[in-house]
Design a protein around this nucleic acid. Structure first.
Lengths: 163, 163
DNA sequence: TTAATATAGGATTTATATATCTGTTAATAA
DNA sequence: TTATTAACAGATATATAAATCCTATATTAA
């Protein structure tokens, strides 16, 4: 096993990127999103609940309810989702698993790995959902065109502006 | 959960780094190593067996048996251990978990992450155990001085040259 | 040759993450 | 006001990794 983010985190990122493609204030149900992204609905529900706790998304119960982003695109970064789902462990723990890995007692790759870790953190922090939106649109489109007919996709999009 | 390498891989790296500190051809039992590194013996045994399959270590059964490195320090790199234990998945799978993440259908962080991934691979590949040996010695020393008395440590080292 | 030792290999147990199920609560369209 | 919808919350089930256990086999010191 070699994981970087947990499954929860991956799916959270996917769901948030999905929402970022559409208008703010447009609510999508967990069922909706799970179908689009082809991921288990029940599991996604839990994940969206966690994201709601961190106010990365907001939820609305009942008819015409669902989830939408909790803040403007320009105020959400990938690192926010990662921290919400997996915490900051990945940026603190020794990559070799040594217990007392510090500046005083560094592991053999301490310094090099530190730089890499900083780069990772920066990469997840520097852009907001707004800056990567074009890429997100392309990706969500491509998933659609793989999973379902292009017409269904077109319909969905025509009912929700995305530019 | 946020893992980069599996526990197996972490412990494998630790064990190999441990062996790299001592003379070639010096055999350490799994029990020995597990005590030094404070890691479960049975688990470590399995790990060492896997490493033996990949000839990163060689084993000797019976009295005065144990494990030692299977090649000169200058011919073992951290990436060898990582590949042996966890494979190359980490360098291939989409970090966001998207199924069809390719150059044609890239995820929103495809390019940036690719660079990071390459850097990681390079970092694990560029040095051999020989080049990082001084650092390994320091680290193993520090574990020792934490876990056991300095005298025990001194004894162990005096009976095995490490320079 | 024998007793002691240490790896080898399979089976089993434990822990954790992932996934599902069930009933409840809140919201809203009709 | 009511039926319907969808999130919410807790319990349960499944999958996988991590850790342990047990027996067999090989090696060697005595």
């Amino acid at each position: 096993m070699t994981v970087i983010f947990s499954k929860k985190c991956e799916l959270a990122l996917q769901a948030v990127l999905y929402l970022s493609v559409f208008d703010e204030e447009t609510y999508f149900t967990a069922t909706d999103i799970s179908k689009r992204l082809k991921i288990p609905k029940e599991f996604l529900s839990k994940i969206l609940q966690s994201l709601a706790v961190h106010s990365i998304v907001v939820s609305k119960k009942g008819k015409s309810g669902g989830f939408t982003l909790g803040r403007p695109l320009s105020e959400i970064r990938l690192i926010d989702i990662v921290i919400a789902m997996d915490g900051l462990d990945i940026f603190h723990k020794c990559v070799l698993g040594f217990k007392g890995c510090t500046v005083e007692k560094p592991c053999p790759v301490h310094e090099k790995w530190g730089k890499l870790r900083d780069l990772t953190y920066r990469m997840l922090s520097e852009d907001t959902l707004l800056e990567i939106r074009e890429k997100s649109i392309d990706k969500i489109k491509s998933i659609h065109s793989i999973n379902e007919s292009a017409s269904v996709f077109a319909h969905t999009y025509s009912s929700r502006s995305y530019n």
